[in-house]
């Protein structure tokens, strides 16, 4: 599992200048549900809106018992994510994203699955 994760990390790292968007999700399938709390998400769906590709990255913060959200936020910032989508953000996470000029989107309860966001259906999975 760790080898796969390493590969995904390297692929995302090569595109730091691109406009990346991350969504907090519960599973690594295209019809997965959206996680209510940003830090507790199992996976992050990382979409590149320019090239039309997407992939799933595991949340590195879940291994730790404390400040999982902050670790996840730093992980996404290092990968060059510019927009983050979830339904709930903590105070520390919000502060970290503000410092690094990342846009926060709080989605309404209408969105329950990843496929409810229409532009995501047009993306190609790597």
């Amino acid at each position: 599992m760790s080898a796969v994760l390493f590969q995904t990390d390297r692929r995302i790292m090569t595109k730091q200048n691109k406009n990346l968007t991350a969504v907090a999700v519960t599973d690594c399938k295209m019809n997965t549900g959206i996680e209510v709390c940003f830090g507790k998400a199992k996976y992050f769906f990382v979409a590149d809106t320019e090239s039309g590709t997407c992939e799933f990255a595991e949340n590195p913060g879940l291994k730790y018992s404390e400040s999982a959200g902050l670790r996840a936020a730093k992980f996404l910032i290092n990968r060059g994510v510019k927009t983050v989508i979830s339904s709930n953000f903590g105070a520390a996470v919000k502060e970290e994203f503000d410092k690094n000029n990342v846009r926060i989107v709080i989605m309404s309860d209408k969105f329950k699955y990843l496929s409810d966001i229409k532009w995501i259906n047009n993306l190609k999975r790597k």
């Binding site: 989508i85 000029n101 989107v105 989605m107 532009w119």
Partner: peptide, 22 residues
């Protein structure tokens, strides 16, 4: 339209459309 909320980062410009439903 979709009732989602979003902010703009310090160096960003004013958004013209919703990032979720455009």
């Amino acid at each position: 339209n979709c009732e989602s909320l979003f902010n703009i980062p310090k160096n960003g410009t004013e958004p013209g459309k919703c990032p979720l439903c455009f």
